[in-house]
């Protein structure tokens, strides 16, 4: 089903060079994810640098894809939701390469590449609904930037969740005085703590601005309807949780494991918002649909 969705989308919507580049990028990230996970568990046999090379090639293919799309369509390559989410994945990949260049963290690739594959999988699963209906919607630049920022924020929160997860593993292992297996290759507790804090600090403003732009794309009369949709409600709860994580961290009442647990809760809400509601609450789940429905009712009256 996944392959069919992917093929129908790529064959019908984009040309051959872009399709090849997109396939290559997704395949590259998939291989990088496998190598990255293998490097986490057996660093003596598999090196993370191989994953980085593969991921680098995949990222390059993604850039080629966007270039091909510009040539094909003659406009900016953010014509539908698929492309907006793909652009967010590209931003996340570039952020990964820049951050690891600034501060090497060999184990991070083992989590970042699976994250990218996850984003593409979800994107492809939702591609059918995104290509047609949303093509016109993203013509509104506010919506395009809203989606870009929110997906980017979700990607950053994925990194935060990964850092929180690694922090919990490392912290538990150190408390239990274990020194074997995966834990030896994880980043230090201090760098995970710092990564966790910084990713939340970066992700929260992205999410906040993304939300504001999302509301700004609709007239104020439709905001009530927007707030009543499950996706927007869950997103607001997510925003509140992440705000609590930041405030708690700054005020000092939230630290160590509790801080990590709260970030993981935030990411669970991301999954619920981005994947769960997207897959299972189609009717009325989307803020746009809800807003349009409310407008129709109003105009009918």
């Amino acid at each position: 089903m996944l392959a069919q969705t992917f093929h129908s989308f790529s064959n019908s919507a984009i040309g051959l060079p872009a399709s090849v580049a997109l396939h290559a990028a997704i395949l590259g990230y998939l291989i990088a994810a496998v190598i990255g996970i293998a490097a986490l568990y057996a660093p003596a046999k598999v090196r993370m640098v191989w994953a980085d090379w593969t991921g680098g090639v995949a990222t390059l293919a993604l850039v080629v894809y966007f270039g091909a799309r510009v040539v094909e369509s003659g406009v900016a390559p953010l014509q539908n939701m698929f492309e907006v989410v793909t652009a967010s994945a590209l931003c996340l990949a570039l952020a990964y390469f820049v951050s690891t260049r600034l501060k090497p963290m060999p184990a991070l690739g083992g989590f970042a590449y699976p994250a990218l594959v996850g984003i593409f999988l979800v994107n492809l699963m939702l591609a059918g609904s995104l290509t047609g209906a949303s093509a016109g919607e993203v013509a509104n630049p506010l919506i395009a930037v809203h989606v870009l920022l929110v997906v980017l924020a979700y990607g950053v929160f994925f990194m935060a969740a990964v850092a929180a997860w690694m922090f919990l593993i490392q912290e538990r292992a150190l408390k239990q005085r274990r020194n074997e297996g995966l834990v030896k290759h994880l980043p230090s507790l201090e760098s995970l703590r710092r990564l966790l804090h910084r990713t939340v600090l970066v992700g929260l403003p992205l999410l906040t601005v993304g939300f504001v732009l999302g509301f700004a794309a609709f007239p104020p009369s439709q905001w009530g309807a927007l707030l009543a949709t499950p996706k927007v409600l869950t997103s607001l709860v997510l925003w509140a949780v992440l705000l609590a994580a930041v405030v708690g961290r700054f005020t000092g009442w939230l630290h160590g494991r509790r801080h990590s647990y709260l970030v993981l809760l935030g990411f669970a809400l991301v999954l619920l918002t981005y994947v769960g509601l997207g897959l299972f609450v189609r009717e009325g789940g989307s803020p746009r649909q809800a807003a349009h429905a409310r407008t129709d009712v109003c105009s009918g009256l």
Partner: peptide, 10 residues
């Protein structure tokens, strides 16, 4: 010291 390095990087 090996354990210390798992707690601190700098």
């Amino acid at each position: 010291v090996g354990f210390v390095k798992r707690v601190f990087d700098d």
